[in-house]
Design a binder for these strands. Structure first.
Lengths: 218, 218
DNA sequence: ATGATTTATACGGTATCCAATGTTCAATCG
DNA sequence: CGATTGAACATTGGATACCGTATAAATCAT
């Protein structure tokens, strides 16, 4: 695929949505906070209309909730909802991993290992992003674009809470890293069921860590 | 909580989106057809602004694609995309069914059987809708609202093509009906793995029927 | 005919205006 | 004194008018 040499002629609404998404995911807008159309429009130098359209888009992504005559409110996920999103990730990422292993190539294995190396020397704030790069690198060859897009949205939405957790503990990171290494090994050897099982454990571990942390600091 | 005596005060954009969704799903707008803002606005007696917001929402649902300076184009799903959506349904509906069986009650069983009865005497055009009611009845007690919403969107999006198929053949309907009866029996008996297996076969059968039909009539 | 150029149409966006609704806070009443 | 009412004020939802620009259709030149 031609890597989008076309000048990015995104509509303003999409640009606004991108900007707001970044702010929400970075935690600049707290959960429950109300986004005012005029404020956002003025801050970004646009009129209210693209802002409203951006709110619609963000609502579809689950990042805000549009309440009539109140505006866009940054969504606050309950523990149940967070748990459910992790369940969905487990199912969909399991599918992706299975199909990816069917199409696995040595190049992907090599690039994945390179990403794992980068992750080890990454700052905690970048860790989550690189972590997603690793998963995306493998899932890309699954040839399931719709599923991948859905998983990415969920991942972004959950990432807010992972970031709040302010980097996993050293212990958790080491465990995650070890699981990544084993995961790539299993992919290389084509051991699909074991890889999917490990992925489930991996995601379950992330869920438990996050929910425990949220319960302690609620 | 007061059971929503509040008048449904949906925004115009949502009402427009609802209307357009119904038209698209009913096939009144063909795949690839271009929706003009002015036309839709005039036809529905609103200005362009809620129409544009409705387009955004429908794009998030996968029903249209917004092309810059061309407008909203009714999306055309490729066979690969249709297949992928069925895969996603299988995973997510499997999860839903599993959790639903954990919470199964005799009331749900009874209501499900009543829906199956209604399905037998329904006109072909209503069949798809009642079919979804049956699945939704069971999934509702899974207590997985986000997953259910995702599955519903996918179901709606695929339903366009099922409707094009102009009602399943008598043979297919009989098979589907028999599977429904067995499915409810398995739910009643709490035989989770068998029920999920049957569901997978059920969805796979629907996929194969649809794709075969589309290949023959493309 | 075919390629280039003009013209018409529709979209993306802004500015402005109005109605409907939510919010706030002071005045009022029990 | 506390709860309620209600009137300002602020904000959203939406309409209309208008502009610049991109696409598509029609025209023109070769």
């Amino acid at each position: 695929m031609a890597k989008s040499l076309t000048v990015k002629r995104k509509s303003l609404a999409i640009q606004v949505a991108d900007a707001l998404r970044e702010l929400i995911l970075a935690g600049d807008y707290a959960q429950g906070e109300q986004l005012r159309q005029d404020d956002v429009a003025k801050k970004l130098g646009v009129s209210r209309i693209p802002v409203r359209e951006a709110f619609q888009q963000l609502e579809a992504e689950g990042l805000v909730v549009n309440v009539p005559y109140k505006g866009a409110i940054v969504s606050r996920l309950s523990l149940d909802e967070i748990g459910e999103y992790f369940d969905i990730r487990m199912s969909l990422e399991g599918d992706l991993l299975g199909h990816a292993i069917d199409n696995m190539t040595p190049e992907v294995i090599a690039r994945s290992r390179k990403i794992i190396d980068r992750m080890n020397s990454a700052s905690p704030s970048k860790w989550g992003e690189i972590n997603w790069q690793l998963h995306a690198e493998i899932y890309a060859i699954a040839n399931r674009p719709i599923t991948l897009e859905m998983v990415k949205k969920i991942h972004d939405n959950l990432d807010r809470y992972v970031r709040i957790q302010l980097s996993l503990s050293q212990e958790n990171r080491e465990r995650a890293n070890e699981e990544h290494v084993r995961m790539v090994d299993l992919c290389e050897q084509g051991r699909k069921n074991e890889a999917i099982g490990l992925l489930h454990d991996h995601i379950n571990g992330a869920r438990d860590d996050l929910i425990k942390h949220l319960q302690e600091n609620e």
